[in-house]
Design a protein around this nucleic acid. Structure first.
Length: 296
DNA sequence: TTCCAGGCCCATG
DNA sequence: CATGGGCATGGA
């Protein structure tokens, strides 16, 4: 039996054209990667992965993990085709200019559903904080990098066996109840995430919305980041602002449902990618303005 | 101190 | 069907 750890062989080089590792990890899809020097360390499923992107764009990954990393970061997504499908307007063009190489990650289903339930009305930094607490306290340890121990996301069974008070102690607030209830539905076999793969987008969305703590936004995130439905268009407060400023200036009373319908048609078959680019760019612009005086 | 965050849910018009 | 308010937490 193999026991992969931080010493499992010299890293090997993997070609990764059109891929921006740091930006992808920092784009609010996943919340558990840590950066040290030029390297990132995180857990893919149950495997500790250290990955570095060099100046020439190639990746350094642990030997034997090339496929796992390529699959996780979706290096096979056809970015040229995706970019060609984007509408050409000032907002989209600007986002594309600044976000080239950003990819929509393929996440494990339970981990994705759970983290986005905890994301409700939380800032990205807070989601990361909560995620690390949950992993550290209830997830299986999978190795260490220096002094830092890494953990897998808690299993459905482990989460279902906890109680609301324990979860609230991780900083979950009112989300604890939903997360626990969802874990129990899955642990008891009353629902199944794998079977949702067979459903079409609308049916899958409706099924996901049956979980406590899951509405249209979280469900669309899970469709996009977990089920690889690249058309799914999550509308959070950032995207809603962008849509209203850039596309609905003249219609201030348009409802969210209206924005949703417009977006799904306007941004097309890779709407999820368009959304992710608009989202990330909007956040970066704000951060740049807020921290404009700091040394860079 | 106040504001805001990758929302959801339920009670009212 | 649309709208309003409550819900926990913590960093800026």
């Amino acid at each position: 039996m193999e026991t992969p750890n931080e010493q499992d062989g010299a890293p090997v080089t993997v070609a990764a054209p059109e891929f921006a590792l740091a930006m992808t990890i920092d784009s609010g899809q996943v919340f558990h990667w840590r950066r040290s020097d030029g390297e990132f360390a995180g857990v893919v499923g149950e495997t500790l992965i250290r990955v570095e992107q060099r100046e020439d764009g190639t990746l350094l990954v642990p030997r034997g993990r090339e496929e796992m990393v390529a699959h996780y970061f979706a290096l096979d997504h056809p970015l040229p085709e995706i970019y060609a499908s984007f509408p050409s307007d000032p907002a989209m063009n600007e986002a594309l200019t600044h976000c080239r190489g950003l990819r929509v990650i393929r996440q494990p289903l339970w981990e994705c559903l759970a983290t986005f339930i905890t994301s409700a009305l939380k800032q990205v930094a807070h989601i990361a904080q909560i995620s690390h607490r949950l992993r550290g306290r209830f997830g299986r340890p999978v190795g260490r990098v220096g002094e830092v121990e890494y953990h897998a996301y808690p299993t459905v069974e482990r989460m279902a066996a906890l109680d609301e008070v324990t979860l609230r102690a991780c900083g979950l607030g009112f989300r604890a109840k939903s997360l626990l209830a969802t874990a129990r539905l899955l642990a008891e076999g009353k629902r199944d995430l794998e079977s949702i793969r067979a459903l079409d987008d609308p049916a899958a969305l409706a099924e996901l919305c049956r979980f406590p703590g899951v509405g249209a936004k979280v469900a669309n995130c899970v469709l996009l980041f977990g089920y690889e439905r690249l058309r799914a268009f999550p509308i959070d407060v950032w995207i809603e602002r962008v849509l209203r400023e850039m596309y609905f200036q003249r219609k201030p009373k348009a409802t969210t449902a209206k924005l949703q319908r417009f977006s799904e048609k306007y941004f097309g078959v890779y709407g999820g990618y368009a959304q992710q680019y608009l989202f990330h760019h909007a956040r970066k612009i704000k951060a740049r303005k807020a921290g404009g005086a700091d040394k860079g």
